[in-house]
Design a protein around this nucleic acid. Structure first.
Lengths: 114, 114
DNA sequence: TTATCATATATAGATTATCTACATATGGAG
DNA sequence: CTCCATATGTAGATAATCTATATATGATAA
């Protein structure tokens, strides 16, 4: 449905951390999962994701390891760290405060329970 | 409370249009109103707002006029146009889709009624 | 009176998070 | 054997903020 991309700024890393909070995943898989879970609202680009994963790893929010899949293809899996989980928690709090503030201005109520 | 500024990207123009949907306002006033209505979550910078107002005027979403206040100070008031109202409506729709999608990924429900 | 603060608008340059475009490589399907 | 989906990656462009700076007036305090 192609939503305004500028609205996405800043929340992508939170969404990635959230995905990895459930299970280890590789990049390509994250793109698919994000699209699926958001009902096609998100279509994260590979050119956005991979550099972001590298950054998150540098910041010790993620660690990575390579694994050979059934089809002999090598995939790079990412795992969330303790620090990453902490950051996720903080980002979720910020997200709640932010959306509540926007909804206050828009005149509607906010009941996000995430 | 100083929320993560990167989360604000893209929604500022929507908030400005919403403010002006109620009544004409001048720049400095918008900054104050936004802070008040968001319970201090938003502290929009003058260096962000004024260029944005100029852009919105160029895009025919706003018109402006000068008015002399009681204290003889000249203020530049902005008024939302029909086109601006239309854009506001669209942006609000996008905002709902976007926050719903994020909340879907975060695993919480979204009930914004704005 | 004079210094300082709040009000009021504005521009320049830096920063950051996206994007598009390109590059590379493999497995599977036709 | 060719093309598409899978899979990861970098370079450069774009867009929306920010900080810093500039200018000017009215109000207030020393």
């Amino acid at each position: 449905m192609a939503i305004d991309k500028s609205l996405l700024t800043g929340s992508t890393s939170m969404l990635i951390l959230k995905l990895l909070d459930g299970t280890d995943m590789y990049g390509y898989q994250m793109i698919e999962e994000l699209r699926k879970k958001s009902n096609n609202a998100f279509d994260l680009k590979a050119g956005t994701l991979y550099p972001l994963l590298h950054t998150l790893e540098q910041k010790n929010m993620l660690t990575s390891y390579e694994e050979v899949a059934d089809n002999a293809r090598v995939r790079k899996y990412y795992s969330i760290t303790k620090h990453g989980r902490q950051q996720l928690k903080e980002k979720k709090e910020e997200w709640k405060v932010y959306t509540a503030a926007v909804n206050d201005v828009l005149g509607g109520a906010s009941f996000a329970t995430a």
